[in-house]
Design a protein around this nucleic acid. Structure first.
Lengths: 110, 110
DNA sequence: CAAATATACATAAACAGGTAATACATTGGG
DNA sequence: CCCAATGTATTACCTGTTTATGTATATTTG
């Protein structure tokens, strides 16, 4: 039905991966990067993104620094030391998930 | 966190695929088959499975026939003609989802 | 120059699809 | 004889989304 529901639970590992590769990013930048990387397939909504970033910051997985760009404020996020461990765990979980799906879709190649 | 949440939305296409390959299956059989195929990784809970089977039957995607096995009753499900179309749609959605995830995990191979 | 669009963050309500627990009944093995 | 496995089913709850709304600045376009 609604294919976007498939992405439930994927957002966190995606963000951790992007932050691992890019050192620091701000929210809007993440949405655009993801849209770009997925050729428009995946559009992260703000209602999903910002609460998640706040939660990850509260959990000590991310740390944030504000920066003024003209009259605007940007909030840059980056991985903490804990976040890097968390990132590895999240990535292998996601990889495992994909592998398991592949087992289901194509048992013969297992 | 909870990796099982990743599988949200995957249950329907998985069931349609299994029924497409096996002509007819009953609920418990589906849970065991999935557990088997995924080497114990994915355990479908009854609270997820039965409501979904009922919904798909109500939507005309599946049809059911009861069968007595000794003193027990089994409910076999199979795809309707509509269900076979639905199955194709669901499978390509799931494949697209996996491809998109791969784009995110490994942009260089895209 | 006004209007539309893009940038940028944030929050609340509603929703969907799960989990976990519970229930009930039959069957087979130790 | 009890307990695990088989088999269908329902319910309360949880979680991570979507959708809608709000605020504000910057840039493009007719």
């Amino acid at each position: 039905m609604n294919k976007s529901i498939l992405y439930k639970g994927c957002l966190e590992p995606i963000i951790l991966k992007l932050l691992n590769e890019n050192r620091r990013m701000y929210g809007y930048e993440i949405t655009q990067r993801v849209k770009d990387l997925t050729k428009g397939e995946l559009n992260i909504s703000e209602g999903a993104l910002y609460p998640l970033l706040h939660r990850l910051e509260a959990e000590g997985i991310l740390e944030a620094e504000m920066e003024n760009i003209g009259n605007r404020v940007r909030k840059y996020y980056s991985l903490t030391k804990d976040g890097k461990k968390q990132k590895s765990a999240a990535m292998s979980e996601l990889q495992n998930f994909i592998d398991t799906l592949q087992l289901l879709l194509n048992p013969k190649l297992a």
